[in-house]
């Protein structure tokens, strides 16, 4: 087993001070580990990987890994990534975003990146809350749960990220939790391999800001909640509807293949080139 951590250490920036800034029990570190293992498994070099991150706790993980890392503005990571990918399609561009980042302030960019099918791996670290700014409601905060800006319970319906991504046209949509690390490794690896816009939603607990206010005594309780409620998609589909409402399906939610924007663009350019000569 020792190779797992050693492997991760190989990809960390050792001139950055560890431990990282994230809270005890925060799942973001687990996602980072998963991401590193996926990159390693595919044999990608450090130089060809670009991590583009937004603002928030998720945005902070970019600085710790020894890839090309770009820590952008709140909600706009996908726009930077689009520019990078179109400018140099050879790069493997991974976009790390939080739920508030990707779906509240950046919701429009998210929809359009999925629609254009630009070749990115979008990794949304969904902790159902604005962690870094102190636990305000995000667009994925579940109905009736509490936050500093919903002291009497959230009255609005929340986004289902995978459904949204699928509807917007993302060809590969998957979800896992940080407890289901092997699944997470697998879906991230697949997402990195595939062409086009591939979305992985990682459910990751925020005890500090979300759990505390919503009857989770400890971080571990939140992991236990995942253990109980995250159900593989196949099993989930067999559940009666009333049961489904209480559970969260994980696994590959949808998978199809469409040529990515940069491939289509290159094809268009070669057509123009052909017409000229």
């Amino acid at each position: 087993m020792a190779e797992v951590t050693q492997l991760i250490h190989h990809y960390l920036r050792h001139n950055k001070r560890f431990p990282h800034v994230l809270c005890p029990g925060c799942g973001h570190g687990i996602v980072l580990g998963s991401l590193v293992r996926s990159v390693h498994q595919l044999g990608l070099t450090k130089d060809e990987v670009v991590i583009v991150a937004g603002i928030g706790c998720s945005g902070r993980i970019a600085v710790y890994v020894d890839f090309n890392t770009v820590h952008t503005t709140h909600g706009r990571a996908l726009t930077f990534a689009t520019g990078i990918k179109m400018a140099n399609p050879k790069l493997k561009v991974i976009v790390v975003m939080g739920d508030g980042d990707a779906l509240s302030i950046g919701g429009n960019h998210f929809l359009h990146a999925a629609r254009r099918n630009i070749g990115l791996t979008a990794l949304i670290l969904n902790n159902n809350i604005y962690g870094m700014t102190g636990g305000q409601t995000s667009s994925t905060t579940p109905e009736s749960s509490y936050s500093t800006t919903s002291p009497f319970g959230q009255q609005e319906q929340s986004f289902d990220i995978v459904k949204l991504a699928k509807a917007a046209g993302a060809p590969y949509v998957a979800r896992s939790t940080v407890l289901h690390v092997k699944l997470l490794d697998r879906v991230i690896t697949t997402a990195l391999e595939r062409p086009g816009f591939n979305l992985v939603e990682a459910l990751t607990p925020c005890h500090t800001q979300y759990g505390r206010k919503n009857k989770f005594k400890t971080t571990v309780d939140m992991y236990k909640w995942y253990k109980k409620n995250a159900i593989p998609i196949d099993a989930y589909q067999k559940l009666p509807e009333a049961e489904q409402a209480l559970r969260t399906p994980i696994g590959i939610i949808s998978e199809e293949t469409r040529p990515s924007l940069e491939e289509r663009y290159a094809m268009m350019k070669s057509r123009l080139e052909g017409a000229k000569s």
């Binding site: 087993m1 050693q6 570190g29 580990g33 940080v178």
Partner: peptide
């Protein structure tokens, strides 16, 4: 028992399981 759970799930890369 060398299952590796702790190593995979440590968010802080603080655990090494050695055979």
């Amino acid at each position: 028992r060398n299952c590796g759970f702790c190593e995979y799930h440590c968010p802080d890369f603080a655990i090494v399981v050695k055979t």
